[in-house]
């Protein structure tokens, strides 16, 4: 039985090796001289901008997500409504639409206004708007995982509601949500490629746009592959880290 499966596999490999046009593949996808020509710009411009968009978007999303999570759990009804509406709307929209809205819609609606940081500000805002909705739900689950006795103990020591949240509840919640937030960071790292729809200048190009531009300039697919490798360089270790953190947490809780 197993032998049969291996037989199919070997046949497929033989077929691919025999039929593939290795020269054409090599020239178009793994062109060494084209690849070498991408450096160092693909790192110093492409990867650098991808990291900047991701980190600033993540920071905005984290702050927004925490605020939304606290509003979602607030006893003030309008806060809860706002948070629930925000989360539903932004989780229900394609991220690309948000990027187009921030990059094209807002300048059309308010001519002359510019977000601080220009394109960097726009990319961070778009990524932040999207990720805040996802992170809010993650952080809310983390806050709810902290036993109510923790807040009670803090309040009984004379801490205000805000102080108890900040010093006792939120730090414990963040320990729970670090693995899922790391996964969110991986998602954002990939979504930062949508910045190319904002309309970026040469020096503001991130990996995907950089790869696409050079591929069409040189009529060769290699830049897209190298850009892809650059993503994997970051996303695979980060994903591995998230799984490690998660496993450690499970062990810690027993």
């Amino acid at each position: 039985m197993l032998g049969g499966e291996y037989g199919i596999f070997v046949a497929a490999v033989v077929l691919v090796v025999a039929l593939a046009d290795w020269h054409s593949l090599h020239v178009n996808f793994f062109n060494w001289s084209v690849a070498k020509g991408l450096f160092p710009d693909i790192i110093t411009v492409g990867l650098r901008n991808t990291v900047i968009y991701t980190v600033t978007g993540f920071a905005l999303g984290l702050v927004g997500g925490l605020l939304l999570a606290l509003m979602r759990l607030s006893s003030v009804l309008p806060y809860r409504w706002f948070a629930m509406a925000y989360i539903e709307v932004f989780r229900g929209l394609p991220a690309l639409l948000i990027f187009i809205f921030v990059g094209t819609g807002i300048p059309l609606a308010f001519p002359g206004t510019e977000l601080p940081g220009g394109v960097y500000g726009q990319a961070a805002a778009a990524l932040g708007l999207v990720s805040a909705a996802y992170m809010a739900e993650t952080i809310r689950a983390g806050l709810e995982a902290v036993p109510p006795g923790q807040a009670e103990a803090a309040r009984s020591l004379g801490m205000s509601r805000f102080r108890a949240m900040r010093t006792i509840v939120v730090p414990q919640a963040f320990r729970v949500v670090i693995p899922p937030l790391t996964n969110e960071l991986v998602l954002l790292f990939k979504d930062s490629s949508l910045a190319l729809f904002i309309g970026v200048s040469l020096t503001q190009r991130e990996l995907t746009k950089f790869g696409r531009d050079l591929a069409s300039q040189q009529g060769n697919t290699t830049p897209i592959l190298v850009a892809g490798l650059c993503y994997l360089l970051i996303t695979i270790p980060l994903g591995y880290l998230a799984r490690r953190l998660e496993a450690r947490q499970k062990r810690g809780r027993r």
Binding site: E152, A153, S156, L157, G158, R163, Q172
Partner: peptide
């Protein structure tokens, strides 16, 4: 509440702080 100490059935120590942290945190912050 600062003038009223409370001890709970389930202890409710702060698990993310050491013993010293548990006993100092409210002194520091409050």
């Amino acid at each position: 509440r600062r003038r009223i100490g409370m001890v709970f059935q389930s202890f409710n120590l702060f698990p993310h702080l050491t013993v010293l942290g548990n006993v100092t945190v409210a002194q520091r912050k409050v």
